[in-house]
Simulated assay, not measured.
Amino acid sequence: MNNIGSVLLLILLAITFVQSGYEKTMYWNDNVTWLRQHFEKTPIKNTVPAALFLILVLEVISGILCISGCIQILVNNVRTFGLYGAIFSCVTLLFLLLGQRMAKDYDGARTIVIYFIPAVMAVYWLS
C-alpha cells in the first residue's frame, strides 16, 4: 500500500486517456469537423486530421502505460510502466495545451492544466 497515491493517479490518467481515445476513434469525423473550425485561425488548420491522429496515438499509449503501471505496481511493486505512463501523460497534455493556446481557447487551456498537475505529481512520486 506504499504506492496507493500513485496507483490512484495512474487510474485517473488511464480513465482520462482511454475514454478520450475511445471518443476520438468512435466519433472521428465529428471530431475532425469540430476541430477544423476550432483551429481555423491557427497554423495547424490544414493538418487537423494528422494532429488529431497524433493526439490519439499519444492518448492510447498514455492510457495503456498507466493501466500497465497500475498492474505492475500492484503485482510486483515495480514502478517502471507507471512512470512511463505518467511521463507520456504529461507530454500528451502539453501537446493539448499547445493546441488550446494556439486556438486562443484559454478556458480549454485551463482545463488541461487541471489534468497536468496530477500527471506531474505522478511523475514525481513514481520517479
Rank of each mutant, 00 (worst) to 15 (best):
V18Q: 08
I4S: 14
D105R: 06
N76C: 13
L54Q: 12
P118Y: 06
D105M: 02
C90T: 13
K104G: 09
K45M: 06
T80P: 01
I64C: 07
Q19I: 07
C90R: 00
W125P: 00
A122C: 05
V113I: 14
P49M: 09
A119V: 05
M1L: 13
Y115P: 03
I15Q: 06
L8Q: 09
S20F: 11
I61C: 10
S127I: 12
S62Q: 03
L94D: 04
I87W: 04
Y27L: 10
Q37G: 14
Y115C: 10
N76H: 13
W125I: 11
A86W: 02
F81A: 08
I112D: 04
Y22C: 10
I73D: 02
E59P: 01
I117L: 11
I44K: 04
V123T: 03
P43I: 10
L126Q: 01
A119H: 02
D107V: 12
L12D: 11
V48D: 06
S89W: 01
V123E: 01
V48Q: 06
N46K: 11
G85W: 02
T25M: 14
F88T: 01
G82I: 04
T92N: 10
V113D: 06
C90L: 14
G63K: 02
K104Y: 10
A109E: 03
Y106I: 07
P43G: 14
S68A: 15
K24E: 05
L35F: 13
L13Y: 04
